[in-house]
Design a protein around this nucleic acid. Sequence first.
DNA 1: GTCTATACGGTGATAGAC
DNA 2: GTCTATCACCGTATAGAC
Lengths: 189, 189
Amino acid sequence: MSDNREKFLLTASALMEKQGYCGTGLNEILEKSGAPKGSLYYYFPDGKEQIASEVALRAGKIISGRIQERTRDQPEAGKAIHEFLYTVALRMEETEFHTGSTITMVAMESVAQSQRINQACREAYGMIIDAFKGVLLNRGMEEAKAVGIAEMIVAAVEGGIMLSRTYQSADYLRRVADHIRQMLDSKIN
Amino acid sequence: MSDNREKFLLTASALMEKQGYCGTGLNEILEKSGAPKGSLYYYFPDGKEQIASEVALRAGKIISGRIQERTRDQPEAGKAIHEFLYTVALRMEETEFHTGSTITMVAMESVAQSQRINQACREAYGMIIDAFKGVLLNRGMEEAKAVGIAEMIVAAVEGGIMLSRTYQSADYLRRVADHIRQMLDSKIN
DNA sequence: GTCTATACGGTGATAGAC
DNA sequence: GTCTATCACCGTATAGAC
């Protein structure tokens, strides 16, 4: 829990979110973090692979945490998730669309690169799916149905983020959010 | 339209689909394609950037073409798209999940890398969205509605492919396909 | 915990001969 | 059209001093 370790991981997250795993060099992370060069392999003895794994897990924790927090006060599932996704869209605009896809960036490359990173990405996505599932369960949806719908939400949202990133317009994600809300409202039957 | 140029582009497509833009080296493409080393910058004077752009555009053409062909004989939109997506799922299983995401792989990295590649990815996604839109229009859906739904389909499918890739299970994509069919059938009202 | 130095292979790209 | 040689730079990782 050292300060320099934390600084390093934070910078690595930002850079990999923007450029991906292969596109981000250790030297670049070192530079931008301002962390001491000598301590890299002290904190991360397994090198880049370990760093990327921790970046993915960290993102999974943060995002699932945000989902829980920001949906807490809204009793309707559709409205709660819709509001959350709109804040994500806003954040994408504020960060020049270099945000909202840490896990995706690392996950896509990991399949051909590293078993360890791939496993971390699975766990990270698992946390997010579980978070959405929790929102649905708390509003009275039955377990079996909630898992499937939570997966659908994650798929649609990740795709929407990807389109928004490519076209540099958060409206793709917003339309996905609108559709999800509409779907959830109709599923209440 | 030389043979060696074609060989080269084909190999580049396969490798970038698997490993992404930064993760794929020109030397690797050269080796695996068997194309002559000396002709790389003769066919692609703008280097890697040009290659990736052509890879993305090529993928857009191929995929949109497949959508048109394989949905032609099925009069119901929901069923047609569902069947198409199931063939994609099958193909993912057959290729160890290194398939179905050429544009996505290149697109995610391109935003921070190259304006030119990014533009090519927009056009490529445009072709795919148009292809799905065409399927819906041909079955009688009105224009304005069709664009939005086509975008939703692409978002959900891309997200589903990404989850399938990460978890090495085509069932994520299949569940997305099931959901899309259900959605389209209900939209007929 | 942090530093410096360094090893070693790889990267995209270019020049000039044939 | 293709080849070879070569460029300058970058990548990750390690060793050993402090």
